[in-house]
């Protein structure tokens, strides 16, 4: 069985930096990392490698310059083969374009029995590439999976949505996306990291998969820091009286909001 894990290089949003004056993000100063959920997708695939002996391949879209470390990270975790679809400015590619690149790759280099993705990316958190890809390929699917179990040749996939728990029983081929609840990703040992450095990945120009006119960019006109207008009244509580004062202010605000 072959398993494909598409991974993305995301901005680490916990380290976002904005220009104080213009409110624009200073993206060059923000580290780019593999998203937590992508790491869980790789881990889910690697657990299948251990239990079922599947071959784990991964793919990312980007440039050698920016994505080399990401590719090495995936190898260090224990993946068998990596592909980099070479394209610039990948963070402006629209979701359909990303799905169609992966879809075309699967048609050309597949078949893959299982595709595992992270449920959402760290920076744009749209969660739409996995469902778009499932529709493109016509695969059965389960998204936002937080538990994967295998019973014979049936995969049991559990996902929690707003209204309850959905449990899917699927047999390959299928596509799933996993959350950080699905597993705890392994941390590669130093020897695996060193070994990964010697591994090669295949680089394919994006136009081998889709034509230039099919590459659609998101037409972003501006990005600005989102400041919610808030009062920012701060009460520091050091003494017993401060506790009373804080409680008094909370109650006043609850009255103002017509809760009390």
């Amino acid at each position: 069985m072959r398993v494909l894990v598409p991974i993305k290089l995301s901005y680490d949003i916990n380290q976002m930096k904005y220009d104080e004056r213009t409110g624009e993000p200073i993206l060059d100063a923000v580290p780019r990392v593999m998203g937590d959920m992508d790491r869980c997708a790789l881990e889910a695939a690697l657990q299948l490698k251990e239990s079922l002996g599947v071959v784990v391949e991964f793919i990312s879209i980007g440039s050698r310059r920016t994505h080399n470390k990401l590719m090495m990270d995936a190898y260090a975790m224990g993946c068998d083969k990596g592909y980099l679809i070479e394209a610039e400015d990948t963070n402006t590619l629209d979701a359909y374009t990303v799905s169609s690149i992966i879809g075309k790759f699967v048609e050309k280099y597949g078949p893959y029995d299982i595709i595992i993705m992270g449920a959402t990316s760290q920076d744009t958190h749209s969660s739409v590439v996995p469902p778009a890809l499932s529709a493109l390929l016509g695969y059965r699917a389960a998204f936002g999976v937080d538990k994967v179990t295998v019973e014979g040749d049936v995969f049991i996939l559990e996902a929690t949505y707003e209204d309850g728990i959905y449990r899917y029983r699927l047999t390959p081929p299928f596509i799933i996306s996993v959350t950080t609840e699905a597993n705890t990703p392994r941390i590669p040992k130093l020897k695996d990291i060193l070994k990964a450095r010697r591994m090669k990945y295949e680089v394919l120009p994006v136009n081998d998969l889709i034509s230039k006119d099919e590459v659609r960019k998101i037409n972003v006109t501006s990005i600005k820091k989102y400041v919610t207008p808030r009062r920012r009244e701060i009460i520091e509580v050091d003494s017993e009286e401060d506790v009373d004062k804080a409680v008094y202010r909370i109650i006043e605000l609850l009255k103002e909001a017509e809760i009390l």
Partner: peptide, 23 residues
């Protein structure tokens, strides 16, 4: 922009090639 809403719109996008904006 809920779990199911994103899935629905994502599937629609895959079927029709339209663009999509979430959140």
């Amino acid at each position: 922009s809920s779990n199911k809403g994103r899935m629905f719109a994502g599937i629609y996008t895959g079927l029709t090639k339209c663009s999509i904006v979430t959140d």
